[in-house]
Nucleic acid binder design. Structure first.
Length: 848
RNA sequence: GCCGGGGUGGCGGAACGGCAGACGCGGCCGUCUUAAACACGGCCGGGCGCAAGCCCGUGCGAGUUCGAAUCUCGCCCCCGGCACCA
C-alpha cells in the first residue's frame, strides 16, 4: 500500500518547477523595485558586481544566492528592497582575449555578459535587471570622465612623474596588482620592473585622516584594521640635520628626516639617504664618487626580484660626507642604502641603531657605532654592548646618554626635544602616511579614456563637458602586441585644442577599473540619467547602502577607493553623505577541490549548470548555505549535496502526503511513545514555533548553515508524526505553513510550488509566498512544560532530570539531591555548594 | 618579521563560560524490493566492561573558575594580507 501511495503524489521535479516560477516571478515583477515608494522602509542590498569573464561559476552562486535570500527575507518583513546587478565590464582579460583570438574586446565582453545574464537567472535570484549597469557602456563611462574633470577642478586629480611598477609582458602598469614576495604581475606572473612615467593621480591622501574614522559604519573588525594599516598613519617629527663642511665643499645643506622617535635623537650615529635622494649626488666626496654612482645605478636598475634574492642583507655605501646632529653637534657619516625608501617620509633617515632593528643590522654589517639612549627605568648599565635593538614604547622608559634629557621619561622627552628644536627652527611635529595617492593611469585600450588633451600652446587642456563622452574608437588594431593601440590610432589621437583650436593630441591612458567600481551603486539608482552621474534625490533617499556583501579580497582597495570617492563626491556636492556602505559582510571564498583558487587554467572550476541540471537551483542554493559559515568559504566538495536534496524531497513529501507512511517504518501510524493526540499536537506546534524563532534570528545574522540545519530538524520532527492520527491536522498544517514560509527565502521555487498547491487544495486564490508576511512566533506554543536539567557533581556530568519548567531552584535542588545517581556520586558527603546556572544546569560541589 | 583569521569525530561543521560533536556527508546493520536503486528505521569520538557504568578526549603546556572547546598567558602548526614605511 505504501508503494502505491508513494507514486500517487507527483515527484519533486525541480527542472519542471523552477523555470516555470522564474517566468512567473518576472511577469509578476517580484524583483522590480519602486524607488519612489516611501511608504515602506527602504533596504538597499548591494552585492559586488561580477567581472564578465564568460562563465558564472560556483563562487558567484556562493556570493549571490544567500544575498538573494536576504532580499526575500527583508521583503517578507515589509521592506522595500533594492537588489541591483551589473557588470564590471572594463579590464584586461577582454584585451588579452582580443589579442589572442582577434576579436574586439567589446564583442568578447558583451557576448560574455549575455551568457552570464542567462546563467544568473537560473539562480532564481530577484535582481532588478531594469537598473543594470555595464561599465563599458559610454552611458556609464562618460560619467567617470565627468567626475574626473570635477576632481581636476577641485585639485583632487593631478599629473606627476614617478617610478611605477611596470609589467613588461602585459605592457601596462602593475602597481596595485603586484603579488607575492617576488613581486610578480598578478595577471601574467612575470616579474615587474620600475619605470619613470607621467601619470594621473587621485589625491586620496587628502582624505587619509577621514578614512581612518569608521564611526557610523558597521564593518567587520578585520577590514577596518586592514584599511587602517594600509593608510599607515605615523606620528612623529621632521627634524633638520645639516651637511657638515669639509675639504670638498662648504656644507650647510639641510637634510630633513622623519622620525617617530625624536626621543632617540642623541643615539643617531649615522644618516642614510635613499639612493634616489637628490642630495646624494651633491654631497658625495670625490673618493666615494665611483662607489656611490655604481650603487645608485645598480639600485635603480635592479628589479625587485634581484633585490630580494639578496634576502634582507643590508647593503649600502658611505657618501664620504657627514652631517651635524642638531641636538649635540655630533659629526655623523652619511650613507646611502636601499633600505631607505625614496617614496616614504623625506627619503632620508637618522639612524639610531640602538633602538631600531634595521639600523642595528646595518650598523653591525658596516661596523658603525651604537649608542644606547633609551632604557627601562629599572635597568642598570652593565657596560655590555647591546645584542639587539631595544625597540620599546613603554611609558616608563627613560633617556640616558642624552645630555640634559637624561632621566626623563621617553614620552616626555619626545615632546621636549621637538619643542626645543622647533624653537630653533630645526624641527616640527609631523604626521606621515604609508598610503600614496591613487595612480589611475593605465596604458590600455579597454578602459575609460582620461578626458584631457595636450596642446603645444595651451598645455594640458581638460575636455569640455559638452564634448563628453570621449569615446573609444570602434576599430582597434593591436598589431599583435600588448601596446596600447590608442597610441597608434590617428583618428583618436588627433584633435583640435578646445581652447585655441590648434592641433593637439589626446591623452591615450585609460582609467583604472577601480574607478568604475568606486561609485557604481549610485548609478544603479538612475542608470539611464542623461543629465548627470546621479539622481541626487534618489541618492539622498537610498544611500548609504544598507548592506553590502562581497569577497574579503576587496577588503582594502575597492572598499577604500569607494569610501574615498564617496567623500570626494560629497565635497564637490554630488552626493550628501561620506560613507558608501553602512553594513558590510565579507563572505569567504569557495576554492577548488584542490584547495586552490578556482580558475580555468587550474581546471578546478565547478560549473553550477551541471549541478542545477541534476538537483535544481534550490538544492544548490541551500547546499551552498549549508556548507559552513558564510564568511568562511573553503574547498569545494559536493559530496554532501545529496543530503540537502533529500531534505527538500522530505519537505515535498510532508507537504503533499502527510498520511502516507514509509515502507520499513515499523512504528508507522503510531504516535511516539507516551504521547496522546493532544500532547503530540502540542509537541508539533512547539517544534514549529521554536524553529521559527531561531531561524528568524539566523537569517538576520546571515548564519545560514545553522538556519538550514534547524529546518532539517523541524522536518525530521514532523517526519516522526507522518502517517499518525495528527498528520494533516490543525497543528500539522500550521507547522507546514511555517516551514514553507521560512524556507521561501532560501529555496524559493519549491516553497512557491508547495504554497500554490496548498492554496489550490484549500480552494483559495493564488498569491505568491514571496509576498507573504513573515510568520509571528507564538511564544505560548513555543514554551516548554518540562525541561531537562543536566546534573553535575564537581563539574562532571552525572545525571539528567526532567522537571516542570516552573519549578524553583530550591525545588529543583530537592529533586536532584534525591536522585539515585547523584546520591551514589556524593558517596555520603554532603554538598558544599549547589550552583544553579541560570536554570540551565545544576552543579553540586562537594569537598574531600 | 608584522597584522588578521583559524586548529573540535573518517569528512563539512555545531556549541563560543554550563550536557562537546547539533545538522549533514560517509560507514555499518536492518525494513521494503525477485534484485539493485530510491525511500524509511537504528547504530557509529577513543579505551575498559556481559552490562549498569567508569575513565580519557576540542593542536601542546600552564593558569583563572564551582565549571573552560569557549577567558588569560606561553608554545606549535595551517590559511589570508602586508612586507626594510624610519
Amino acid at each position: 500500500m505504501s508503494a502505491s501511495q508513494r507514486i500517487r503524489i507527483d515527484r519533486y521535479d525541480p527542472t519542471e518547477i523552477e523555470p516555470r516560477w522564474q517566468q512567473r516571478w518576472d511577469e509578476l515583477g517580484l524583483h522590480r523595485t519602486d524607488l519612489s515608494d516611501t511608504t515602506r522602509p527602504r533596504y538597499y542590498l548591494l552585492t559586488m558586481y561580477p567581472y564578465p569573464s564568460g562563465d558564472i561559476h560556483i563562487g558567484h552562486w556562493y556570493i549571490k544566492t544567500p544575498t538573494d535570500a536576504i532580499a526575500r527575507f527583508r521583503r517578507m518583513h515589509g521592506d522595500n528592497v533594492f537588489l541591483p546587478i551589473g557588470f564590471d565590464a572594463f579590464g584586461l582579460p577582454a584585451e588579452n582575449a582580443a589579442i589572442k583570438n582577434r576579436i574586439h574586446p567589446a564583442q568578447w565582453t558583451l557576448a560574455n555578459i549575455r551568457n552570464m545574464r542567462r546563467q544568473l537567472r537560473t539562480m532564481g535570484a530577484t535582481f532588478d535587471w531594469d537598473h543594470e549597469v555595464v561599465t563599458s557602456d559610454p552611458d556609464y563611462y562618460r560619467w567617470n570622465q565627468w567626475i574626473f574633470l570635477r576632481f581636476l577642478e577641485a585639485g583632487l586629480a593631478y599629473r606627476a612623474k614617478s617610478p611605477v611598477d611596470w609589467c613588461p609582458n602585459d605592457g601596462t602598469l602593475a602597481r596595485e596588482q603586484v603579488e607575492g614576495a617576488d613581486r610578480r604581475c598578478w595577471r601574467c606572473g612575470s616579474p615587474v620592473e620600475k619605470r619613470e612615467l607621467d601619470q594621473w593621480y587621485l589625491r586620496i591622501t587628502k582624505y587619509a585622516d577621514e578614512l581612518l574614522d569608521f564611526t557610523g559604519v558597521d564593518w567587520p573588525e578585520p577590514v577596518r584594521i586592514m584599511q587602517t594599516n594600509w593608510i599607515g598613519r605615523s606620528e612623529g617629527a621632521e627634524i633638520e640635520f645639516t651637511v657638515a663642511p669639509d675639504v670638498h665643499h662648504p656644507g650647510g645643506q639641510p637634510i630633513r628626516v622623519f622620525t617617530t622617535r625624536p626621543d632617540t635623537l642623541f643615539g643617531a650615529t649615522f644618516m642614510v639617504l635613499a639612493p634616489e635622494h637628490p642630495l646624494v649626488g651633491e654631497i658625495t666626496s670625490p673618493g666615494q664618487r665611483a662607489a656611490v654612482d655604481a650603487y645608485v645605478a645598480q639600485a635603480g636598475r635592479e628589479t625587485e626580484i634581484e633585490r630580494l634574492s639578496a634576502e634582507r642583507e643590508k647593503t649600502g655605501v658611505p657618501t664620504g660626507a657627514h652631517a651635524i646632529n642638531p641636538v649635540n653637534g655630533a659629526r655623523i657619516p652619511i650613507w646611502t642604502a636601499d633600505y631607505v625608501l625614496a617614496g616614504y617620509g623625506t627619503g632620508a633617515i637618522m639612524a639610531v641603531p640602538a633602538h631600531d632593528e634595521r639600523d642595528f643590522a646595518f650598523a653591525k654589517e658596516f661596523d658603525l657605532p651604537i649608542v644606547e639612549v633609551i632604557r627601562p627605568d629599572d635597568a642598570l648599565d652593565d657596560g655590555r654592548p647591546l645584542e639587539e635593538a631595544y625597540v620599546s614604547k613603554a611609558e616608563t622608559d627613560v633617556l640616558v646618554n642624552s645630555g640634559r634629557y637624561n632621566g626623563m621619561a621617553a614620552p616626555a622627552a619626545f615632546r621636549a626635544i621637538v619643542e626645543w628644536l622647533e624653537s630653533e627652527g630645526k624641527a616640527r611635529f609631523a604626521v606621515t602616511y604609508r598610503i600614496r595617492d591613487w595612480l589611475i593611469s593605465r596604458q590600455r585600450y579597454w578602459g575609460t579614456p582620461i578626458p584631457v588633451v595636450y596642446c603645444d600652446r595651451d598645455g594640458i587642456v581638460p575636455v569640455p563637458d559638452r564634448d563628453l563622452p570621449v569615446l573609444l574608437p570602434e576599430t582597434v588594431d593591436y598589431a599583435g602586441s600588448g601596446d596600447n593601440p590608442l597610441r597608434r590610432d590617428a583618428s583618436f589621437l588627433d584633435v583640435a585644442c578646445p581652447t585655441c583650436g590648434g592641433p593637439a593630441r589626446r591623452e591615450t591612458d585609460t582609467m583604472d577599473t577601480f574607478v568604475d567600481s568606486s561609485w557604481y551603486w549610485f548609478r544603479y539608482l538612475s542608470p539611464h540619467l542623461a543629465t548627470g552621474p546621479v539622481d541626487r534625490e534618489l541618492v539622498d533617499r537610498w544611500t548609504p547602502v544598507d548592506q553590502y556583501t562581497g569577497g574579503a579580497e576587496h577588503a582594502v582597495m575597492h572598499l577604500l577607493y569607494s569610501r574615498f570617492f564617496t567623500k570626494a563626491l560629497r565635497d564637490i556636492g554630488v552626493v550628501g553623505e561620506g560613507e558608501p556602505f553602512r553594513r558590510l559582510f565579507n563572505q569567504g571564498q569557495v576554492l577548488g577541490a584542490d584547495g586552490e583558487r578556482m580558475s580555468k587554467s587550474r581546471g578546478n572550476v565547478q560549473d553550477p549548470d551541471e549541478l542545477v541540471g541534476r538537483y535544481g537551483a534550490d538544492t544548490v542554493r541551500l547546499f551552498l548555505m549549508f556548507m559552513g559559515p558564510w564568511d568562511q568559504g573553503g574547498p569545494w566538495n559536493p559530496t554532501g549535496i545529496g543530503g540537502v536534496h533529500r531534505f527538500l524531497n522530505r519537505v515535498w513529501t510532508l507537504a503533499l502526503d502527510p498520511h502516507g507512511s514509509e515502507p520499513g517504518d515499523p512504528d508507522a501510524e503510531k504516535l511516539p511513545a507516551g504521547l496522546d493526540a493532544a500532547a503530540a499536537e502540542k509537541a508539533v506546534r512547539a517544534a514549529a514555533h521554536r524553529t521559527l524563532a531561531v531561524v528568524s534570528a539566523e537569517y538576520a545574522d546571515f548564519r545560514f548553515n545553522t538556519m538550514v540545519a534547524h529546518l532539517m530538524e523541524l522536518s525530521n520532527a514532523l517526519m516522526r508524526f507522518r502517517g499518525t492520527e495528527i498528520a494533516g491536522g490543525g497543528a500539522w498544517d500550521e507547522a507546514i505553513r511555517i516551514l514553507l514560509l521560512v524556507l521561501a527565502p532560501a529555496a524559493p521555487h519549491i516553497a512557491e510550488e508547495l504554497w500554490s498547491r496548498r492554496l489550490a487544495a484549500a480552494g483559495a486564490p493564488w498569491s505568491s509566498i514571496h509576498r507573504e508576511r513573515w510568520p509571528v512566533v507564538d511564544a505560548a506554543a513555543a514554551a516548554a512544560v518540562e525541561r531537562e536539567v543536566p546534573v553535575q557533581v564537581n563539574g562532571k556530568l552525572r545525571d539528567k532530570v526532567m522537571v516542570p519548567v516552573d519549578l524553583s531552584d530550591a525545588e529543583v535542588e530537592a529533586v536532584v539531591l534525591a536522585r539515585e545517581k547523584v546520591v551514589a556520586a556524593l558517596a555520603g558527603r554532603s554538598p558544599d555548594r549547589v550552583i544553579h546556572a541560570g536554570g540551565r544546569l545544576v552543579n553540586i560541589v562537594v569537598k574531600g
